[in-house]
Amino acid sequence: MTKYIIRRLLVFFPMLFALTIIVFTLLKLAPGDPYSQMMDPQIDASVFEEQRKARGLDDPIPVQYFRWLTDAIQGDFGDSFRYKGRTVAELIWDRIPNTLYLGVFSVFITLIVAIPIGIYSARNPYSPLDYAATGFGFFGLAVPNFFFGLAVIYIFAIKLGWFPSQGSISKPGLEGFELLKARLHHLVLPGLTLGLASTASYMRYMRSEVLSVLGSDYIRTARAKGLTERTVLYKHTLRNALIPIITLLGFEIGVLLGGAVITEGVFKYPGIGTLFLESIGNRDYPVIMAITLMLGFFTLLGNLIADILYAIVDPRIRYD
């Protein structure tokens, strides 16, 4: 096991390195640069030429890449082009908490809703509640995020006034419990919206996994041994049914930090997702590179963790 982890870690960094080369090159090959959108008839184009030169955009791509790499290794991800006067580290650091709150909250909602309902549906297939859950599942997968977001805003924020619809807290200067309360309150609608599709798919996974495990021979054996239904379910069924869920969760770590572009946009929730999208549109190279690197890192890490968890959950899996 230890050997396996070390082996995985050894390919970890070369993969990240390759990722940065590919992304950097593709970015630079794409037409346009951070200044190509700043068109203003009052401003002479030579001003932007001078700034391109000052920021080293005229240098050959390999030169630019190595400059980026040398700085990045030392922990310096540079300054944003668009967010003047701000370093990339500050920008990302400011937004990570928001992104994490939203991600964790939505995963939490997903798990506490999807797993019990999935199990219930599998245990009572073709019951009215199973049909309802199936219906909800298809609804959740079919409805686009932004539409569901706007619908809940309209109903719960504008018409009923139960939840705020925009932003992550209600006003500046909150502290302690007030701050926590404001955060949670602001998380409900975006969290539900973000969690909807994954709740639906996790539920379907859970249902089919539990169903197939319940039909297997060892469950019949377990029941024949006279084990209680409870033991059969928790000890024999769930453990096996959770394996695919763990794979999904492993991927989820990267996704979680990547933020949710559409949900963040509709709810004006300042997270990594909108920053990333915006930076791509503006060719804000240093920001794009830093976020890509971060996402790459956590996606690889998530996969690694998922692989390790397999071995814990499923004793049949051994890494040597």
Partner: peptide
């Protein structure tokens, strides 16, 4: 084209 690419072209 996306605007950054468009203005460049």
């Amino acid at each position: 084209l996306e605007f950054a690419a468009y203005s460049d072209q």
